[in-house]
Amino acid sequence: MLLLEYYATDHWLSRIDARIKLLVTMIILVMVLSYQGVGFQLLVAAISLTLIVSMKIPWRLFLLRFSEPFLIVLVVFLLKIFFSGHDPLFSFDILGFQITGYREGLAEGIAISSRIMAAISLMAVLVYATPFPELMAALSWLKVPRGFIEVLLYAYRYIFVLFEEAMVIYHAQKNRLGYANFRNRLSSFGILTGSLILKAFEQSQTLSTAMVQRGYDGNMPLFQSRPFRSSEIFLSCLVVTVMGILWGI
C-alpha cells in the first residue's frame, strides 16, 4: 500500500499542471517505443532516474517499484540471448549440456531491456510528481470516458478500506492457525476473498445510499483543473522539441 500513497510534494515537477505532464510523458513514451536503437532510450532512462533521485524517493520504495520490471528484463534478456540469432557469442557447459549465447540475441536483449527501463522510469517520474485526483482530472480532460474515471476513483478510494479489512481477516485467521498447512491456507484464502466480495457488495449499497442523500444522480463531480500557465506550455514544448530532435538523430 506504501506504493499507492507516496507523492513528492516539494519537487518542482509536482507544481506543473498534471495535463501537461501526462501529455509530455505520453509523447516521450511513444518515442521510446518506436525508437530503433538503444541511445535515446538510455538517455530517457538516465534523465528519469536522475529526476527520481532528486525527488528523494526512499530506497525501499524505489526497489519495490522496480523489482518486478528488473526481473522481467532479466527473463526477456535470457530468452533473447539463448534463443535468438545464429552467430555464437559464447558457450559453456552445465551438467553435460552445452549452452550457447548468440550475438544477435544479445543485441535484441539489450534493446528490449533499455526500452523497458526507459519506459518504467518515465512512468515513475509522472506518478511520483502527480497526485491521483489530478491525474484522473487530466485523463478526463483527455476525454477518457467519465464512467471509467468514476470507477477508478471508487476503486482507488476503497483499495485502502478493503485492504485494511483483508488484513484484519488475515490476522484473525492466522491467529487461529488458519494458515497452518496448505489445505487450511487455501480454505482461509477463499474465505478471505469471499468476505471481501461480500464487504464490497454491502459497502456499495451503503455508499450509494449515503451519496443519494447528498444529491448523487449517477455522475460524480471531478477535480477542476486550473488554466494553463504560459511558462508550463513553453517548457513542455521545449522538452518535446529537444526529445524529438534527439529521437530523430
Partner: peptide, 22 residues
C-alpha cells in the same frame, strides 16, 4: 445507482486479490 460504486469496489477487490501472495 449503486451499480457504479459496486463496480468500483469490485475493481478494488480484484486489485487486492491480485496483490495477495499465495
Amino acid at each position: 445507482l449503486s451499480f457504479k460504486p459496486l463496480v468500483g469496489l469490485m475493481a478494488a477487490v480484484v486489485f487486492i486479490i491480485s496483490c495477495l501472495p499465495i
